[in-house]
């Protein structure tokens, strides 16, 4: 991880969000501290703090004074909704654009997706 084109703080936020979606960090539990993440990934703690801040702003995480960061109630559902919206924008829209440029109609696209779905 931590090498694609996205800003590093965004990648930190995404990796924690991935962990929450996958159930590694259930709601109400504590996530690794800024210093643990900084030491583990060899990333400046200011950058890690900025990444965690993105999740606090969206109420995915909340701070408990003196204790650390915890996963908020309903975080998983909110993440799922957000990711579904960005899935449409990031994957489905370009898929349809590419299909159109290849002259594939919607029916063909549906059929390809169905075939791919039964294969995997």
């Amino acid at each position: 991880m931590l090498d694609d084109g996205k800003p590093i703080f965004q990648q930190i936020a995404d990796s924690i969000a991935d962990g929450i979606l996958a159930g590694s960090f259930p709601e109400g539990t504590q996530v690794p501290s800024t210093n643990e993440l900084a030491a583990f990934h060899r990333i400046n703690p200011a950058t890690v703090g900025k990444g965690l801040g993105l999740l606090v702003d969206r109420d995915i995480l909340h701070k408990r004074r003196g204790l650390g960061m915890f996963v908020s109630e309903g975080a998983r559902m909110r993440l799922q909704n957000e990711r579904t919206a960005s899935f449409r924008a990031a994957f489905v829209a370009p898929l349809l654009t590419e299909a159109a440029s290849l002259g594939l109609d919607l029916e063909t696209v549906h059929r390809i997706i169905d075939q791919e779905g039964t294969n995997s």
């Binding site: 210093n35 900084a38 030491a39 060899r42 990333i43 703690p45």
Partner: peptide
């Protein structure tokens, strides 16, 4: 080099 980055970050923290 990786060891240097590890220990730099650990000691800085």
């Amino acid at each position: 080099r990786r060891f240097f980055y590890d220990v730099l970050m650990r000691d800085y923290l």
